[in-house]
Nucleic acid binder design. Sequence first.
DNA 1: CGATAAGCGGACCGGCCGGTCAACTTGTTA
DNA 2: TAACAAGTTGACCGGCCGGTCCGCTTATCG
Lengths: 219, 219
Amino acid sequence: MSTPPTTPEASRPARPLRAEASRPSRPLRADAARNRALLLTAAADEFAEHGLDASVADIARRAGVGKGTVFRHFPTKDDLIAAIVLDRVEDLRTVGERLLTADDPGAALLEFLIAAGHQRQQRDLSFLMAAGELKPEVKQAQAALFQAIEDLVARARTAGAVRTDVTGTDVFLLMCAPNYVSGYVPDAPPDLWRRYLAIIFDGLRPEGAHTLPQPAPTL
Amino acid sequence: MSTPPTTPEASRPARPLRAEASRPSRPLRADAARNRALLLTAAADEFAEHGLDASVADIARRAGVGKGTVFRHFPTKDDLIAAIVLDRVEDLRTVGERLLTADDPGAALLEFLIAAGHQRQQRDLSFLMAAGELKPEVKQAQAALFQAIEDLVARARTAGAVRTDVTGTDVFLLMCAPNYVSGYVPDAPPDLWRRYLAIIFDGLRPEGAHTLPQPAPTL
DNA sequence: CGATAAGCGGACCGGCCGGTCAACTTGTTA
DNA sequence: TAACAAGTTGACCGGCCGGTCCGCTTATCG
């Protein structure tokens, strides 16, 4: 019971399916596409629960596939992480760019930060943001997101909704804080981060602002 | 060239030196005390550089001792972590309690937060704060620190230096944010956290405060 | 359908890591 | 200084984890 190849030549190298986010050389097979999606959500869940130490084996199990399948889709654990980060960053950038055309710039900025909080409420992947050296594609997506934030802040500032001495970088950095902070509360209500976003956002407002002791950083 | 024991009985069990933070059954031998100190700072440095994944072997190497010595002093890697956390927490509590008698309650609270930032500037050990299930001794020290913060906030609140709707828990949680945030900046000036502490502290002030969307959590 | 290659799975490998142990060295004490 | 306990050390162990590999299954297409 076997299928001996008519030509007993060396087995095909089977390079990893696609260069991960390069343009599809061939449309993904149906089951492969499904497994890829399963893997991405399973991985996100697993990372959210156990941090970056989540094992590839566990991710595979959670997705209901073999471990080999993980590596077929993502040559490296880092590639898997990068794929997830890329998704999140681009989602957020889309939201940011849409809000650039909103009526009230101050409300738009706040809404953006709420969207960011919601995204991280579902699965806390904060640590992914800075995980290791980013792949160039991720860096690029981050830069695009960063630009959107910069624009949102600029609009809010000229509208007088935020203090004049805060920059896009500041907001980019502070964006992560509310979820981070509420992550330390053992049985926190899922949207506790809103409380700390509110406090921090009050700190961004012009009213009662004290001068800042350090210049804004650049990324 | 050897020292065969006159009585070839089974070697002594050699239980781990002391129950780690129990009262010293006997004063530590001189070299042992020195090694213990070396280990604590080496471990703190190593954790700061590589996170909790820093290997015990690396810590031992950095301290210039053998790996076995680490485990003699700290039966478990977790015990080593706990010892470090305990130090930090108690240092901070001392500062907090001292500031309870300061003249200006608002300035005292700010000074406390600056002290916290400084402590974490030297070695960022944020992740240690919530690392795994805390040992009871650490939990207890944390509770004491928490009480000091609660008192500082209460004084500042009645003095009108912070808004009425923030609690000690809020400050306890937000205390970690400035260092966390500035940790994402690649080549940040070492005290960049001061900028974000200033922003957040402005958010704690009564002037221009908007009502908070979520009730304060309890720990 | 039948053929083909894309995709799948899981045994397997090397390496690392936390922790143990027994032989050895050294501070301490009388 | 002699003798002992306290302390040190690094080889060693079991387990886990990222990544490989190859025989098998199955979607796809003529």
